[in-house]
């Protein structure tokens, strides 16, 4: 188990290292002057020179890379060109919105998807199966921004249960935050839940055909008991992979939903940074996202090992 973890950890660090090199090359080393690019149309050479000095572009590429990495290791991501505040502050601030939103959306999608998948699998071909999977199909097809607008119209405009836009901030306390994130989380969760429930359904169907389910039935378990005691854990394995992918996607992929609800999230930050050519912010956020994806993959691997004894053993060899 320990060596399994170490191996995973090693490949995690290696991935991160390779990713930073690629990001660095793409943004700073390939031909073209980042400073001039960031200045945009203005041709003020003094300002460009100042920026060049600020970015450390006078140094060699190797030194710049080293400075960048060593800075990041102690939490120094540089200073945003447009906002004029440290990038780390900026990103942390946005994470307090994006991270809870992502987790909220994933929890919702899991809570919906797993029962839906299990019910439709155990009643394959029945009306409820057709109905649930039809709904899931619609859920995949509906654009989530449109669904978000519908939610706003219903719950904010008509019923006035939730405010339509904005984020109250963590000073307001846990429940107000939860409330202001509810509609965006539902909009984000809907398509994810639809995909996840289809994965869950096919996974359960596959597992129910396994021989060990028959063994369980021969012991005298009912179909439902066999599914719950022996089927679910086995069926969860592919679902875990999808969950990991969805987490990384939602973390910065919620830009449209963030815009609709005027949430100061990571997606909007990166979008604005790209629009304003703030390469320092772009670079940092992309690196952070890589870190998030790699960490999530690592956690999913851990979860696999926790579920599946065969993987634990493989690490030992």
């Amino acid at each position: 188990m320990i060596s399994f973890l170490l191996k995973r950890l090693f490949s995690l660090i290696l991935t991160l290292f390779v990713a930073t090199i690629i990001i660095f090359i793409l943004i700073e080393v390939v031909p073209g002057d980042p400073a001039a690019f960031m200045m945009g149309l203005s041709t003020n050479t003094d300002a460009a020179d100042a920026l060049r000095a600020e970015l450390g572009l006078n140094l060699s590429a190797w030194d710049r890379y080293f400075n960048w990495i060593s800075g990041m290791l102690v939490g120094d991501f540089g200073i945003s060109y447009t906002y004029r505040i440290p990038v780390s502050e900026l990103v942390l601030d946005r994470l307090t919105v994006s991270l809870p939103l992502t987790i909220y959306a994933l929890i919702l999608s899991t809570i919906i998807a797993i029962p839906v998948g299990v019910i439709s699998a155990s009643k394959r071909g029945s009306f409820s199966d057709t109905f649930l999977m039809g709904t899931a199909q619609i859920g995949v097809a509906i654009p989530n921004f449109w669904f978000a607008i519908l939610l706003v119209l219903l719950f904010s405009t008509t019923l006035q249960w939730f405010s339509a836009v904005g984020f109250v901030g963590w000073e307001a306390g846990f429940f107000p935050v939860l409330k202001s994130l509810t509609l965006p989380a539902i909009s984000l969760a809907l398509p994810q839940a639809a995909i996840l429930s289809r994965v869950m359904r096919s996974s359960v169907l596959e597992v129910m055909d396994e021989d060990y389910i028959r063994t369980a039935r021969a012991k005298g378990l009912t179909k439902r008991q066999a599914l719950i005691r022996h089927g679910l854990r086995n069926a969860m394995i592919p679902v875990l992979t999808i969950l990991g992918l969805q987490f990384s996607f939602l973390l910065a992929g919620g830009i449209i939903i963030e815009s609709i609800f005027s949430l100061p999230g990571l997606g909007r930050l990166v979008f604005q940074a790209i629009a304003q050519r703030d390469l320092i912010v772009v670079k940092s956020i992309v690196t952070l996202l890589v870190l998030a994806v790699v960490m999530i993959t690592f956690l999913v691997d851990l979860a696999y090992a926790w579920v599946d004894p065969r993987l634990r053993e493989r690490g030992e060899r």
Partner: peptide, 13 residues
């Protein structure tokens, strides 16, 4: 009951 495929008849987890 005892089955043909012992490698598959037990829950691997």
């Amino acid at each position: 009951m005892i089955f043909q495929e012992p490698t598959k008849a037990l829950n691997p987890l």
